[in-house]
Every structure is written in C-alpha cells, then in structure tokens.
Nucleic acid binder design. Sequence first.
DNA 1: AATAGAAACAACCGCATCGCC
DNA 2: CGGCGATGCGGTTGTTTCTAT
Length: 318
Amino acid sequence: MGRSPCCEKAHTNKGAWTKEEDDRLISYIRAHGEGCWRSLPKAAGLLRCGKSCRLRWINYLRPDLKRGNFSEEEDELIIKLHSLLGNKWSLIAGRLPGRTDNEIKNYWNTHIRRKLLNRGIDPATHRPITDPDTNQTNINTTTAAGGNLNQNINSSPEVTTGATTISFASTTPNSPATTTHDLVKKEISSDSFTGRKIKNQSPENQERCPDLNLELRIGPPHHQHQNNTLSSSSSTSSYMTQHQQSVEYHHHHHHQTLVTGGRTSGGAIICFTCSMGMKNSKECSCTMSLNGTSSNSTGYDFLGLKNGALDYRSLEMK
DNA sequence: AATAGAAACAACCGCATCGCC
DNA sequence: CGGCGATGCGGTTGTTTCTAT
C-alpha cells in the first residue's frame, strides 16, 4: 500500500520563500491560527506544501523566535540536554525558549560538535575521546565555561549531588560503554512533550537505573493552568510567550498535559525565568529558592549548570 | 579583486506516530 | 483492530555567506 503524497507536487513552489509568501503565511496564521497544515496553503493562497508552510512558520516566521547567537549558557544547556536525550532536537528545543529544533540541530552540527571535540569529548557519546596510542582518556577540564562538564558527565558513571543521586550506570559491568542518552532513550517511557509513547519501559529497565526517574519528561517548564501557585504578576505572565502558547495549542491538540515545573521538591516556588537558568534576571518572580533564600540573589540553577548536576525533578511532570 | 573552500543556515524528504473512523 | 490522513521529527541536502589565499 503506497503512501499518499503530502501535497500535490506538480503545482507547489519549492526552495526559498519569497517575501510575499511569508506575508501571506503570517497574515493567514494571524487570522486563523496554526494547524490544519494540509489545507492551509490553499486557504492562504500559497503554492506550497503544508509541510513547507509549517516548517517556514515554526523555524522562521514565528514572532517569538529569538534569533541571534546562542549564549554560553544555552550552549551548555544544549550539551547537557543532548547528553541526556541524544538527537531529540525537539525535546531540547522545548527547553530553550525562542529556539527551534532545526536551529539547535544546525547549531549542534556546526558549532557544538567542534567545541566538544576541542574539549576532547566525543559529541556522540559525551565521553572523553580515547587516545588509541596510550589507551588513556583525554579529559580536558580547563575549558572556561562549563569546563567541569567532563567531570560531571564523564568521569564517573554516577552523578551525585547533595540530595539526589542520578545514576547512568549499567548494572552489567561487562557490557560495553553505553552513552548516557542511549540509556535514557531506553528508559524514557513517555514523552509528554510530544505525547508519544516510548517503548522499553520494562521492570528490568527500571531496575537497571533505579535512581533515575524513568518517567523523565521534557516539556515547557511552566504551565499556568496547572500551577496556580506561580506568580500571576505581569512580569511572569509575560514569559508565557507566543511560542509557549503555540506549544500549548499543539499539545492540547494531542490531549496531553504539559510539564508543570516551577516547584521544587522542597515546596519552594521558582519562576519560569529561573527555571530556564536565567539567573538574576529582572523577570525573576520567585518566592523562594531551593534553600529558602531569595532566588534573585542566587538564581536557580536550571539543570545544574552551576553545580554540574541535572535536576531531574525540574524535568518531571506529575 | 577574484576565487576556492569552509561554514552557516534554510528547506526538503522520508518515516514514525498519533488520532479518528 | 486495522486503515488512513495529519502532523511532527530527525537526517540530509542545497544554497548562501564568510574567510583565507
């Protein structure tokens, strides 16, 4: 049984978008919202395939896109998320407001790969590149920003923080080295961001990684509908960007719940700004930080960028 | 100034997955 | 339960821009 083509190829434009096409798409989506990509081109008077329209909107025209260079913090966040998730660019993008999966994917391939190689880290496995001559690992811990990443991710099979132990170790000591994201891939049971079910959630898998919440879920770290403890100040609501509204739209479409975030295991409430690692931001509206002090002074270290330990609780959704 | 090669980025393609019927 | 259409994801390719010579 053949696959039906996504569009009528004979009468569709391809290649670079013109200004007119962009304008048409923008005005149509402004008027009617996203969705129904298949019928959108015709309705909007575009000679494009729906897929192409969606891609153009998501990756280029969406008004909340950040553009511009990636910050050092974003770099490190991407690296850490990639070490956990592998090439799950959409999941990674879900943690970087204003960035698209395509943008991150391209940035990874052009910048971060090289950056990691320069640090002596294999970008695919996030492990130190082994020198075949000496059979010793090449660990470079002198990199300025995030230079301790090697130690945190690679030097020990277990990442231990004060209260939370996150283990990536396989219980089969003789098994070959497994990448972090390989493990996570196997263990993740459900992807709440996409709503897609992921296989391999077996009791055996749970046992292999008992410390890791196997329901690791990634999603926008804030959802007002579900977390009425968050501040409703204008500064907070301003971060409910159009992107997030858009995300909300899509995932409402899939009848799923978005990640709540914003509350620590200790009950302290953190704001979205801090949960995204934007330390000391003016936008911060935290009531308390992890240790009960004002996060305006300390900043919540999203994903453990400061201490090198990922906070899976912030990724978890109830 | 011209050119080649590298880098960056936008867009396409095929496939996986979802939800509906 | 299976078929089908719609959507989204990730890999890849094509084009443009930048840089070195």
